[in-house]
Design a protein around this nucleic acid. Structure first.
Lengths: 106, 106
DNA sequence: TTGACATATACCCATATGGGAATATAAACT
DNA sequence: AGTTTATATTCCCATATGGGTATATGTCAA
């Protein structure tokens, strides 16, 4: 069995650095494909492909505007990742505490 | 260019569902490989391979204990993911606000 | 309709992947 | 040393991937 598809969920989609860049870029403001490509220094087809993946998992939304398609980040889709990572917050607070204790014991 | 290696960073490592399961399992308590396999219903070699990936990106720690190797989650390594997702918190709060507004407008 | 602009898709390729099964390494006990 | 127990590695395979380039689709304007 190969690796799970990038489109299988937000975790996989977000694993690709360029896609994270795109999400950051589109968080500030909705943008057409060409501006994303220009802004991040990527080829247009590459951007389109990444956007397709992001769209498939609901991480971005599109709307037509003239001959452009305006994409923007759908933060709601990122939330599950946030919630999952947050599960460990208590844990790293603890671990930090122990490190602190050790440091202060000196 | 193929997909980035699962060991290239925490984002890629965590994209695999079983690895997330393992991290959750090891968050509660440190465990030997065999218990992970039994607890999650996975083959032992599979677990060892996943642990290797997780170890490579610092998501788990190991220590010897008798003939066992006890693995546990290193929450610190999850923190960057948390921080990244948290960047969008403001955004989804906003978007929820707009949805609320629309709902209340009815 | 034709042309210009914007985006999407198709194709090719090298490569890392996760599962399965078998085997290798390693440590502990007698 | 030899045996059992625990974990790691190796090999095989099907497959999705991301980049590049070329091309298709789509939309507006004249």
């Amino acid at each position: 069995m190969p690796r799970a598809a990038t489109t299988s969920d937000a975790f996989n989609a977000v694993a690709e650095p360029r896609r994270r860049q795109i999400l950051e870029f589109l968080a500030a403001q909705e943008r057409p494909v060409s501006e994303i490509a220009a802004g991040l220094g990527l080829e247009q087809p590459s951007v389109s492909k990444h956007l397709r993946v992001l769209r498939n998992v609901g991480l971005v939304r599109v709307r037509r505007h003239g001959r452009h398609k305006l994409y923007n980040t759908n933060a709601e889709a990122i939330r599950p990742l946030y919630e999952w990572t947050r599960t460990f917050e208590r844990l790293w607070a603890h671990q930090l505490g122990r490190i602190k204790e050790r440091a202060e014991a000196k």
